[in-house]
Design a protein around this nucleic acid. Structure first.
Length: 316
RNA sequence: GGCGGGAUAGCUCAGCCGGUAGAGCAGAGGCCUGAAAAGCCUUGUGUCCCCAGUUCGAUUCUGGGUCCUGCCA
């Protein structure tokens, strides 16, 4: 079992700052579990660590793909596991830090075996959706994989298409894949959740968006467009960016876009909190109230006998 | 000043020929197995601006008021 420290929490809860402090304390590196920070050039709006922080502590899975590329939970797991093993072999406890709950769940619990690299089926399903409508796709799912259809809403286009895609490509239903999926995790995680009172968190979020503008968010967007990317690039479909389409394209007032961005960030934070409600953590704390020394000790004693060879010296 | 348009849920607005009212968004709660900052589910009693009139009954019609707003001056 490989020890890893995992830091989770809703947006603007202080994950980056805590990760920095723990990385220094344990002389280790950080693996970002963030579906947006993987994008190059989207720096300000995704609240990436600052250049200074990136120099200070080595970060992984940040700025690794272009705005017109896609990333997913499977790619995250593959990449993250490689890095985790590498760090672990050097006697370091990797710190996984990020707000993309699915990525961390996938890392800890695994995904079923299904590698779909060809995008033609997905495109085909999109065509069928446009031609015949969602209900037709849902009917197909009901006949092919009634079990999955039962748990997927007839309105949930994304999941209906996904379930059909899996079936068409692999010849096996999604529910069957899940049933035969193994759940052997190689990781021994120490999970930390950063929480905050709703009102305080919302306030932080609102301020953060304003600070992003001050930090040059609009210029960042203009630069990305100048590089040849467009609003249809997957990376730009992110909270804190997509709300500004109308500012650039339709002359919508800046403050209207900003208040939308704030609103969507709050919605996002709420969804994250709901997700975390059913996860179990070794430590639940507020930032910056959290004491690094105490957390450090808790982590050390938790891993105590599970430390890889040489780790104890490294962490002192 | 003249001619219009409007006043309905926190916000933007629907309400056909009169029977006390709904959508989207927000808010609240929840779901989540390769798009997850995505996607989805549940949840809507409010002086229908005020006053009078017509009517068995008015948010809905008529008259008067008040306040917004557009065009012309």
């Amino acid at each position: 079992m490989i020890p890893v420290i995992i830091i989770e929490g809703p947006t603007a809860s202080g994950k980056t700052a805590l990760a920095m402090q723990l990385a220094k304390l344990f002389k280790t590196e950080i693996i970002s579990a963030d579906s947006r920070q993987v994008y190059k050039y989207l720096d300000i709006g995704t609240a990436k660590p600052t250049n200074e922080e990136l120099c200070d502590v080595k970060h992984h899975l940040i700025s690794i793909i272009n705005p017109d590329e896609t990333f997913n939970a499977g790619m995250f797991c593959d990449n993250a596991m490689d890095i985790i093993k590498e760090l672990s072999s050097k006697g370091k406890i990797p710190i996984v830090c990020g707000g993309t709950g699915l990525y961390i769940k996938a890392l800890l619990e695994g995904l079923f075996e299904c590698v779909i690299t060809d995008k033609s089926t997905r495109l085909q399903l999109e065509t069928e959706y446009n031609d015949k409508g969602l209900s037709s796709l849902y009917e197909e799912l009901k006949s092919v994989d009634p079990e999955s259809a039962l748990s997927i809403s007839y309105n949930d286009k994304q999941r209906i298409q996904r379930a059909l895609e899996v079936y068409r490509v692999t010849g096996t239903t999604l529910s069957q894949h899940w049933r035969s999926q193994g759940r052997k995790s190689e990781l021994k995680p120490f999970r930390i959740l950063l929480f905050e009172e709703r009102a305080v968190l919302y306030n932080r979020i609102d301020n953060r968006i304003v600070n992003m503008l001050d930090a040059g968010l609009l210029t960042e967007i203009e630069n990305i467009m100048t590089m040849g990317y467009s609003w249809s690039s997957p990376g730009l479909n992110s909270v804190g960016y997509k709300e500004y389409v109308s500012y650039f394209e339709d002359n919508t007032l800046l403050h209207e876009c900003t208040s939308k961005a704030q609103q969507h960030s709050r919605n996002y934070a709420k969804r994250q909190v709901t997700w975390y409600n059913k996860c179990t953590f070794n430590l639940t704390e507020r930032y910056p109230a959290i004491s690094i020394c105490i957390v450090g000790d808790r982590i050390k004693s938790y891993f105590d006998s599970k430390m890889p060879e040489g780790l104890n010296e490294n962490s002192r």
